[in-house]
Amino acid sequence: MDDPLTASVPALAPRVALLDALAEESNLTRAAALAGVPQPTASRWLAELGEQLGTPLVTRAGRGIRLTKAGQRLAEAARRAAGELRLGYRAALAEADPERGQVSLAFLHTMGGVRVPELLAGFRTAHPGVRFDLVQGAHEEILQRLRTGEADLVLTAPLPADDPALHTRALAQQPLVAVVPAGHRLATRRRVRLAELAESEFVSLKPGFGLRGIIDGLLAEAGCTPRISFEGEEADTLRGMVAARLGVAVLPESEPLPNPGTVEIPLQSPAFREIGLVWSAERPLLPAVRTFRDYATGARRTP
């Protein structure tokens, strides 16, 4: 058998404003006007609610009305609900405003040092009212956040290919370099072939990071099977490991300068990772999110 309370919830929703008004007014005509409904409709709603509850919500008090004890209880709940609705409405208005909404942006750890802060700083100069919810993570992790709706936009590399559920837009190509300790036998070279690193121990990102997949592919093409001594989650940690002479690495070029104790050498066969923005093709973007996407991509017309 259906729960009568559950069945009555849809009918309660439009009556919340009336009950909220009745908590302030002892006159049904004025309460109905505040709620934006005709007085006959207000009278009918109160009668219907009283029948559902098995007890009246209002009683006569001279030339006006007053709430019964049951009516007071329901009106108190209605006032709380109305307050929440007003807050929700204001929040919804803010989200619908391209200058006041919130953007949930997920990005790779390797982009948190300079690239993302510079992007946000430039955007906030023109749009100071937009708020950001920022999340860092591995490539697959942040793409999953996007698919489940936890993130509005993802800044990542490599860009996912052949996925009809996602839109992508390339933003930049970031050179990959060999990172070796200062004093390393290759540190004075102007360029280096990946095969020349084959005998060295490597420090690398953990599997599941997009950059790890790119670098593993490059090393395989060069005929290298790297001996990995350490796997981490942040490029800066790996650079620290290289400086401590715990291995060499292949990483994106530092922004803005290499870490002390390390030397970055361009690759003989230049390699890049393509950085780009990803968003859902299945959900419309809120105005503030769309504004940031267009700023980041430099696009005027994008799906």
Rank of each mutant, 00 (worst) to 15 (best):
E48F: 11
R66V: 05
I142A: 04
R90Y: 15
L251N: 01
A249R: 02
L285F: 01
A33L: 13
G101N: 04
E141V: 15
G137W: 14
G210M: 10
A17G: 02
A182V: 08
S43Y: 09
G50Y: 04
R185Q: 07
V278G: 07
L18D: 00
V37M: 03
E99A: 14
E253R: 14
E201S: 13
A281G: 07
G247T: 03
V16W: 08
V130R: 03
L246C: 15
A244R: 13
K206M: 06
L277M: 11
W45D: 05
P128I: 04
L53S: 05
T59I: 15
L57E: 00
T291A: 15
Q102P: 05
E255V: 10
I265V: 15
S254G: 03
G210L: 08
L219M: 14
R30G: 06
P287D: 11
L5P: 05
L119G: 04
R212N: 06
V250S: 02
R15T: 02
R147C: 11
L194D: 00
P40L: 07
G101W: 06
L159R: 01
R189Y: 08
G64E: 05
E51Y: 12
E99G: 08
L46R: 03
P40N: 03
E48N: 04
L34T: 00
G112T: 05
L194N: 00
L211G: 08
F202L: 12
E274A: 05
F292A: 02
G276N: 02
S204R: 09
I65N: 02
A299I: 12
T291P: 04
E199H: 10
V154H: 00
Y295H: 14
F209I: 05
P4E: 03
E199I: 06
L134H: 00
I142D: 01
A249Y: 10
L286R: 14
T6C: 07
R293H: 10
A220S: 14
A249G: 01
N259C: 09
L5E: 10
F272H: 12
T148L: 15
L57G: 00
P287H: 02
T302Y: 13
A106W: 03
E76W: 10
V179P: 01
R169S: 12
L49H: 13
V177R: 02
L238V: 00
G298Q: 04
G129S: 04
R147P: 05
R290P: 10
E221H: 05
H109V: 09
A222S: 00
G50T: 06
E233F: 11
L205W: 01
V177Y: 04
E150D: 13
L159I: 07
V58S: 03
S200H: 14
G276A: 03
I214C: 07
L19V: 02
T148A: 11
T29F: 12
R60Y: 06
Q52K: 13
T188R: 15
P10Q: 01
Y89A: 11
E76V: 13
E253I: 09
A172Q: 10
A32H: 04
L186M: 09
T41V: 12
L153S: 00
L153V: 11
E199W: 13
A249V: 11
A13H: 13
T188D: 15
D133C: 09
A31G: 02
L57T: 00
A7M: 07
P175F: 02
A126M: 14
T68K: 01
A33H: 14
E118F: 12
E76S: 11
I265Q: 01
R273G: 10
L277K: 07
P164H: 02
